[in-house]
């Protein structure tokens, strides 16, 4: 607070402040309503019978919610199966990315070996290879391995991440070197130091990476579309596409499916907002 400013200029009348705040809340609420509008319509349609959705003018509130469409989305649309697949694939990718990143980042941050800097640049170079560019050879590889329509095919190509290695290396570099020396005195080897000192001290970065990896894995579209043809291994994103193509006029069913596909990840956002924001801002490098 500057003290050389006349008090009346710094403190407007009370009603003026109230008016400013009211205007701010109004603007915030309008913006929130516009952003949530599509979500609101989706939920409303999912709870209405089809005839009501087709009525004109549309009814934008629910009087008699029809939960039946959710039940049908699970039954006719195999959404339960798709959800399980998405969870299995996303959790495996998350665990794998955290593991490979911890190992690689540890080497880059704590070990000395020839060509370390060069190798780090090579890692970062993978960020410049968009997945969309390499889909044809990658499809061929997965096909040769016999991994089409399999969990391996959905998981293995994504188990390493330069972004994660970069993020964790930065975090490891902030671990005081005294700690390493002290740990060495106490007889800790590298593995012990990694798991009991470096990773716990970097848990914020590890958390950010885990949430970010899960989000990216859950929301993948192109790759699962290419390599899954049967319900058995389809993820929920591709399942949603299948639900839309098969029931294009049953908007309540399609909207219920959309809510089901979106709900787990929105819950993740609410629970882990801080980690997610950290992950996104520290390296939306890949975008």
């Amino acid at each position: 607070m500057a003290t050389n400013v006349p008090a009346p200029r710094r403190r407007p009348f009370r009603w003026q402040r109230v008016a400013t705040e009211a205007a701010q809340y109004l603007a915030l609420t309008v913006a929130a309503a516009v952003i949530l509008g599509p979500v609101y319509i989706t939920v409303i349609y999912s709870l209405q019978p089809v005839e009501k959705i087709f009525s004109y003018p549309p009814q934008l509130y629910v009087t008699d919610p029809q939960w039946d469409s959710y039940k049908r989305a699970f039954e006719t649309g195999s959404l339960g199966r798709y959800l399980i697949n998405s969870f299995v694939v996303s959790l495996a990718i998350t665990a794998g990315q955290v593991t490979t990143s911890v190992l690689a980042a540890y080497a880059f941050a704590f070990l000395r070996f020839p060509f370390r800097n060069l190798l780090f640049v090579v890692f970062l170079a993978t960020l410049m290879v968009p997945w969309e560019v390499t889909i044809i050879p990658n499809y061929q590889t997965i096909s040769t391995l016999g991994w089409l329509d399999s969990y391996q095919g959905l998981i293995v190509p994504f188990l390493a991440t330069a972004f994660g290695t970069f993020l964790l290396r930065q975090a490891f570099l902030t671990v005081p070197r005294d700690l390493r020396d002290a740990a060495a005195m106490d007889g800790y080897g590298h593995i012990g130091f990694m798991l009991q000192v470096a990773v716990p001290l970097s848990r914020a970065a590890v958390g950010a990476l885990a949430v970010f990896s899960f989000l990216m894995a859950w929301n993948q579209y192109l790759w699962p579309l290419l390599i899954t043809n049967e319900d058995e291994h389809r993820t929920v994103q591709i399942g949603l596409k299948a639900l839309v193509s098969a029931n294009i006029d049953e908007f309540n069913l399609v909207m219920a499916g959309t809510v089901i596909a979106a709900a787990p990840i929105l819950a993740l956002l609410v629970l882990f907002q801080k980690q997610l924001i950290r992950g996104l801002t520290s390296g939306a490098i890949k975008g």
């Binding site: 913006a31 952003i35 949530l36 994103q237 399609v254 959309t258 979106a262 990840i265 956002l269 997610l276």
Partner: peptide, 24 residues
């Protein structure tokens, strides 16, 4: 609360967003 709402589409997948807008 506003910040959570404004951030919310970051967690929305391209498939979910597209199907919502297909209807809109």
């Amino acid at each position: 609360i506003y910040r959570t709402i404004f951030s919310s589409t970051v967690a929305t997948s391209v498939a979910v967003a597209s199907v919502m807008w297909l209807t809109l």
